[in-house]
Amino acid sequence: MKQVSTTFAVGILALFLSSQALASDAGHTSETMEHAGQALAHGEDGHASELVKHAEKSLHHAKAAEKAHADAHKHMTEAIKHIEESIKHGKMGHADEGAKHMKEAMQHIRESAH
């Protein structure tokens, strides 16, 4: 049930960010957040392999966003560190710790979008 509500919330956020994409090319930021939310939901549900799958996609888009948004570089760099930690913990089967790092990453992603 957590996954459904988290996915719904992330979907709404992604919709909001995608509307900004037209004005500020925030496409990678939106994709980063969407996959980060899915990774968080799977981590909270104890699905380490799914956490890793979405965290890796989030990382890919976060790195692209980092290059595209020089002014938001600091926050996206921090987000990347937390996403990488989330992947590391997910691969070790520590879904709860992976979820904690994904929450931190999402906070930095949000701050980079301002």
Rank of each mutant, 00 (worst) to 15 (best):
M1P: 09
K2M: 11
Q3T: 14
Q3S: 14
V4M: 11
S5F: 15
T7E: 12
T7L: 11
F8N: 11
F8C: 04
A9V: 09
V10S: 08
G11E: 01
I12V: 15
I12K: 12
A14G: 14
F16N: 11
F16K: 13
S18C: 09
Q20F: 10
Q20Y: 09
Q20A: 12
A21C: 11
L22T: 11
L22D: 10
A23P: 03
A23Y: 09
D25P: 01
D25L: 09
G27S: 15
S30L: 09
T32V: 07
M33I: 15
E34A: 15
E34C: 11
H35S: 11
H35V: 07
A36E: 06
A36D: 06
A36T: 12
A36N: 08
G37K: 02
Q38H: 12
Q38W: 07
Q38A: 14
A39V: 02
A39F: 03
A39T: 03
L40S: 02
L40F: 04
L40K: 04
L40W: 01
A41R: 00
H42G: 03
G43Y: 03
D45T: 12
D45M: 13
D45H: 10
G46T: 03
A48Q: 01
A48W: 01
S49L: 12
S49F: 10
E50A: 10
L51I: 04
V52Q: 00
K53M: 11
K53S: 13
H54W: 01
H54I: 03
A55D: 02
A55W: 00
E56I: 07
K57D: 15
S58G: 14
L59M: 08
L59N: 06
H60N: 12
H60E: 15
A62R: 01
A64V: 09
E66K: 10
E66W: 08
K67G: 08
A68E: 08
H69Q: 04
A70R: 05
A70N: 04
A70K: 08
D71W: 07
D71S: 11
A72S: 04
A72H: 00
H73T: 07
H75M: 03
T77G: 09
E78N: 14
E78F: 11
E78V: 08
A79R: 02
I80N: 01
I80L: 04
I80C: 00
I83D: 02
I83E: 00
I83Q: 04
E84K: 10
E84D: 10
E85Q: 14
S86C: 07
I87P: 02
I87Q: 04
I87T: 01
I87A: 03
H89R: 09
H89E: 14
G90Y: 03
G90W: 00
K91P: 03
G93I: 02
G93E: 02
G93D: 01
H94D: 06
A95T: 03
D96T: 13
D96S: 15
D96R: 09
G98L: 06
G98C: 05
G98A: 13
K100N: 13
H101R: 07
M102R: 05
M102T: 14
K103I: 13
K103E: 15
E104A: 13
E104D: 14
M106F: 08
Q107L: 12
H108L: 06
H108P: 02
I109C: 06
I109D: 02
I109E: 02
R110H: 12
E111F: 05
S112I: 00
